[in-house]
Write a protein that binds this DNA or RNA. Structure first.
Lengths: 228, 228
DNA sequence: TCGAAAAGCTGACAAATATCATATTTTAAA
DNA sequence: TTTAAAATATGATATTTGTCAGCTTTTCGA
């Protein structure tokens, strides 16, 4: 069993503010899990008894709307913690998390996190700052969803994905999303997303083969985002 | 100059977790302001040097989208604190706040809040919980904006306003919003909002005279929200 | 209280997006 | 490897929403 004290992933999130002692205790109560692609980390409405620290892989966090369509709120990757929101406000989860590829995660029980939040103010402040950052992104997303066209949102999403996941040796964005996933990120029908991707391809803005997408003309995407 | 220790508004927000001593110090450094209807509390891009505790009145919090349209993110009323997000993440404000009616607010300098956050863990936890709640609402709003129709969003907004601001003796919702404000809340063109309000009126779902709006058929609104 | 400016309203039309149908390609299970 | 299911793609069409124009009503300051 690997130890939190030595875990490199910890350096990228709020857990870096924990003391040696606190980390040893965390190591003792955490459980490491392998989540296969497509498997569910937690469901909407589920009671979370802790948080997940992502050691490897990416998951999509989404919420079902009443008209039966799924909206992806964010993609969470290696180094991040997921589930703190529900834990802090002591509610059932309002979101669902599904692995986009094989993941390795550590589950840290609620009691341990709550204890650290109450004892270690630097940790609490760090979690608070993270949440403030998430809230800012969420506010920006609200404005985008309400005010931008689907085409603008697709262009924006492509650039986001590019900067967040970087590219492989061939220049393809380092994340595999189905057309449906892409549609669920930008909040549109799958057909519309496909159509716009094809249009971007025809206009030499992007290039793709299946799920491998490569950005050819970043300036053109910027132009679309900021409205001609 | 009124004292924070005796301020009733404090009971409704995180400041209730401060000690007598902390409140006395806060009283000494806070400034009370009257903000007239239409005046700006803070601008997008402005550096906030503190937070506002709202003693009376309501303000709209909005963000300009790049295509020149304004999106109202939330309405904040008596008892709430505004500006903590930017303060916590030490960034310029991403939002603008404008008074919807005459307001009385207390401005509490940044240093004072930061000091309390660092010293008083119960206060920090309370701010964290508030932010978790805001984040949940924001996530829900993202899904609504992305997945619901303008009509559904208007119906939802009317019920929200009704439950948040209650009604006067005549049964009218206790908040005065222009048609443009309503459009900016639901994320649509002013004309579209006007058209739908007229439709609701024609169908006896609501009734209005100018900015006085009264809900007649709550069940019909629910039906619209949840999709026929 | 008068008059200009702002807000509210409605129609006509254009643009964006969803839906449905169907064909093709890819994936994965037997 | 075969084959059924799922994912991708595209056309046709319907629906939703935005834009522009013109009009009426309300508001507010001189």
């Amino acid at each position: 069993m690997s130890k939190c004290e030595q875990c490199i992933v910890r350096q990228f999130n709020s857990l870096k503010h924990l003391s040696k002692e606190e980390l040893v205790r965390m190591s003792a109560c955490k459980t490491t899990k392998i989540i296969k692609k497509g498997e569910v980390l937690f469901e909407e409405g589920e009671h979370l008894n802790g948080v997940f620290c992502i050691k490897d892989g990416v998951c999509k966090v989404s919420k079902m709307s009443e008209n039966g369509r799924n909206q992806i709120i964010s993609l969470v990757q290696k180094g991040n913690i997921i589930g703190e929101r529900s834990l802090v406000s002591e509610e059932i989860s309002n979101l669902k998390a599904v692995a986009l590829n094989d993941m390795e995660v550590c589950f840290i029980p609620k009691e341990e996190i709550i204890r650290d939040l109450e004892k270690n103010n630097a940790f609490t402040m760090s979690v608070l700052k993270d949440m403030a950052t998430s809230l800012k992104s969420a506010d920006n997303l609200i404005v985008d969803m309400a005010q931008k066209t689907v085409k603008q949102r697709l262009a924006e999403t492509l650039l986001h994905l590019h900067s967040k996941f970087d590219t492989d040796s061939e220049g393809n964005i380092n994340i595999q999303l189905s057309r449906e996933d892409i549609a669920n990120i930008i909040g549109t029908a799958t057909e519309s997303a496909i159509r716009l991707l094809s249009e971007f391809k025809k206009n030499k803005i992007i290039e793709f083969k299946g799920k491998e997408i490569k950005i050819l003309d970043e300036a053109a995407l910027d132009k679309i985002i900021h409205g001609f």
